[in-house]
């Protein structure tokens, strides 16, 4: 079945089983490999994308649901919040293995887009769905605060 949606500002048409999780459409069909697979059951956040501006676990989102919607992946992040997050991530070397961080950056960006100066508790809540097996959490928290400060200007 053909499904049309917008990915990173570009209209894309895919012809796949409508039940296919968005994650595998992004990766297998569109070769946007920044979005990762960790669990497939909405537990880890490695597959986080933005769907019409809010975070979404692409591993449990059938592609049929995004017909006509706007999807942003790590490859298409452009907002000032996203830049601030990524610069803060690099600035204090948050990633270890790095595999979870596409998802972490997607969640952190959405957090700052909605809440320019999150408290520790806001951060813990917004990031609770993103597992990091290397346990870089400590630096994630710090980097989000740094990004928030940069955005304040």
């Amino acid at each position: 079945m053909a499904i049309t949606f917008t990915v990173n500002g570009e209209e894309r048409r895919v012809d796949v089983d409508p039940d296919t999780p968005l994650l595998w459409v992004l990766r297998d069909e569109l070769r946007l490999t920044g979005t990762k697979f960790g669990c497939g059951i909405a537990q880890c956040g490695a597959c986080t994308v933005h769907l019409d501006g809010t975070t979404r676990r692409s591993c449990v989102t059938p592609v049929s649901m995004v017909e006509g919607a706007e999807v942003t992946t790590i490859e298409g992040l452009q907002s000032p919040e996203a830049r601030a997050v990524q610069d803060a991530w690099v600035g204090i070397d948050v990633p270890q293995c790095g595999y979870c961080h596409s998802g972490q950056v997607m969640s952190a960006t959405a957090l700052l887009e909605g809440n320019p100066s999150p408290s520790d508790q806001d951060i813990d809540e917004a990031m609770a769905g993103n597992i990091c097996r290397c346990a870089t959490y400590h630096r994630i928290r710090q980097a989000i605060h740094t990004a928030a400060k940069t955005l304040e200007g």
Binding site: R27, D28, R31, T33, G34, T35, K36, F37, T73, I74, E75, L77, Q86, W89, V90, D93, V94, P95, C97, G98, Y99, H101, S102, V105
Partner: peptide, 20 residues
Amino acid sequence: PKVDSRAKSDGTAQFTLDVY
């Protein structure tokens, strides 16, 4: 600074899963 932090923050770092 770590040599790989940028690539691991912008989705460009290549893991086995990313090989097509």
